[in-house]
Every structure is written in structure tokens, then in C-alpha cells.
């Protein structure tokens, strides 16, 4: 793979008080690559993801997005960087007081300063892409979990991010709704989006991930192609974890 990383995590460390949750993490995600992060709960994988747009402030280390370090610069620079990093949460976090369309246009209008027609058009394109254009005027409370998560993906995509971060995007969904969200993610991947995904969907990882990273106790234990990690894990901890989740 030609290495011009789109997202690069360098020597990332995160402490909460005396508790070190991330130790010296290095990770590179190439443009168009889908990197899957797995690991037991408490392994620090979500914290790592949240450090990538500084929702969680790293204790030390660097996060380099397309050649620019998001750890330096003013708060205005940081907001501009955040526009380029789409984030999808486990709990969707759609704005309940706004229609689906407004949810997708808010940051376009207020942060990107797009005109209303431009923002609306872009939002409709993205809603179309996640199969929910017909719900543009609905309110989040009227949608299923799967639909809400797809709107959340559209909300992030509408800002034309360079990288998409997914923090357990399907963990809060009923099993029958998971497929619709994974389908959208697969479609994104096929269109060349760079993605860093924390998830327990092992079958999906096997099928679509370019690389799988196994984290435990705040460190990257092992990384490799899905067939390597799932087929022949080298580390004992990886084997134990995989046998426990029995993918």
C-alpha cells in the first residue's frame, strides 16, 4: 500500500488521573483504507477514536490528519479540522428538536457557512445515499435506531470529511437494524472513504476491513489483515479475546 497516511496517530498517550488508558499508540490509516479496531471493553479503543478529533484531549502524542497536526493550532483551527473528521456515535446523538434535514444542514450552515440552498441540496444527496431522503422532514423520534444512525452518518458526510470515525455504530441497535447501517458503511468504503471503525461486528470486519487492530489494556497488541488476525492471531491475548467473542 502506498503510504501517505490520511490519519496518523503518533505516540498517543491518555491518562485519566493516575489511570493510563492509552499507552504509546501508533497507528496509520491510509487514504481509502478501512481500519477496524477490536478489543475487550476498557481496552481504550473508544478513547483512542475520540482522541482523533480531540473530543477526548490526549495527554501527549500527535494526531496528524492529511499532513496537518491537529494537536497544534488555535481553537478555530481545531474546529476546522473537526469538520474534516466525521464522527458517528454509538448513541446517534441526533438533535431531537430539529427535523432530519435540519440535523444534516446545521453544521454545514453554521460551521462551513454554506448557503441554505447548497446545504439543503448537499443534505438531500447524503440522505439519498443512506436511503432516507423520504424522511427529510421527519423528526428523530419518529425514526428507528437504524434510521437515526444512518441520518447521523449523513450528517457527518455532508461536511465532506477526509476521515470517518465510527464509535461502535451498531452496538445500540436491534439486531435486525444492524444490516442497514453496515450496508451504508460498506458503500462508503467502496466509494473510497477513509474509515476508522471501533466495533464488535467481526463478520463485517472480516469481509470489508483492510486491516484489523487488536487493542487490549491501552496498547495495540497486534495488527494485520483480517485473515491474519482472525485466521492466525499471533498474540495469546488476541486468541483469548477472539475465542471469547466466537466470531
Amino acid at each position: 500500500m502506498a503510504y501517505r497516511p490520511m490519519l496518523e496517530i503518533v505516540a498517543l498517550e491518555k491518562r485519566f488521573g493516575s489511570n493510563t488508558v492509552l499507552k504509546n499508540i501508533d497507528l496509520k490509516v491510509a487514504g481509502g483504507e478501512l481500519v477496524f479496531v477490536i478489543g475487550p471493553s476498557g481496552s481504550g479503543k473508544s478513547t483512542m477514536l475520540r482522541c482523533c478529533n480531540r473530543l477526548e484531549e490526549p495527554t501527549s502524542g500527535d494526531i496528524i490528519l492529511d499532513g496537518r497536526n491537529i494537536m497544534s493550532g488555535t481553537s478555530r483551527d481545531l474546529n476546522r479540522m473537526r469538520l474534516q473528521v466525521g464522527m458517528v456515535f454509538q448513541g446517534f446523538h441526533l438533535y431531537p428538536h430539529m427535523s432530519v434535514l435540519k440535523n444534516v444542514t446545521l453544521a454545514q450552515r453554521k460551521a462551513l457557512k454554506r448557503s441554505k440552498p447548497d446545504a439543503d441540496a448537499r443534505a438531500m444527496d447524503m440522505l439519498e445515499r443512506v436511503g432516507l431522503a423520504h424522511k427529510a422532514n421527519a423528526y428523530p423520534a419518529e425514526l428507528s435506531g437504524g434510521q437515526q444512525q444512518r441520518v447521523a452518518i449523513a450528517r457527518a458526510l455532508a461536511l465532506d470529511p477526509k476521515v470517518m470515525l465510527f464509535d461502535e455504530p451498531t452496538s445500540a441497535l436491534d439486531p435486525e437494524l444492524v444490516g442497514s447501517v453496515l450496508k451504508v458503511m460498506k458503500d462508503l468504503k467502496s466509494k473510497g472513504m477513509t474509515m476508522l471503525v471501533v466495533s464488535h461486528e467481526m463478520a463485517f470486519a472480516r469481509e470489508t476491513a483492510d486491516r484489523v487492530v487488536f487493542m487490549d489494556g491501552g496498547v495495540v497488541v497486534e495488527e494485520g489483515k483480517p485473515e491474519e488476525i482472525f485466521g492466525a492471531p499471533k498474540a495469546e491475548r488476541t486468541r483469548t479475546f477472539l475465542s471469547r467473542v466466537s466470531s
Binding site: M81, F89, G91, Y95, L106, L112
Partner: peptide, 27 residues
């Protein structure tokens, strides 16, 4: 107002003040 609402606003580049005004305040 759920913490996630703030995070969603901040993660989309709205920053604290605009998240306050457009996301948290109405709720």
C-alpha cells in the same frame, strides 16, 4: 441535555458557543 448532544455539535466543528446556541439552548 445529554452529553452526547454537546459532543455531536462539537464533533461537527460547531465549537462550544455555537453548540450551546443551536443544540443545547433550545433543548
Amino acid at each position: 441535555v445529554e452529553k452526547g448532544q454537546w459532543e455531536a455539535g462539537i464533533a461537527t466543528g460547531l465549537g462550544f458557543t455555537r453548540t450551546l446556541a443551536y443544540v443545547a439552548l433550545p433543548q
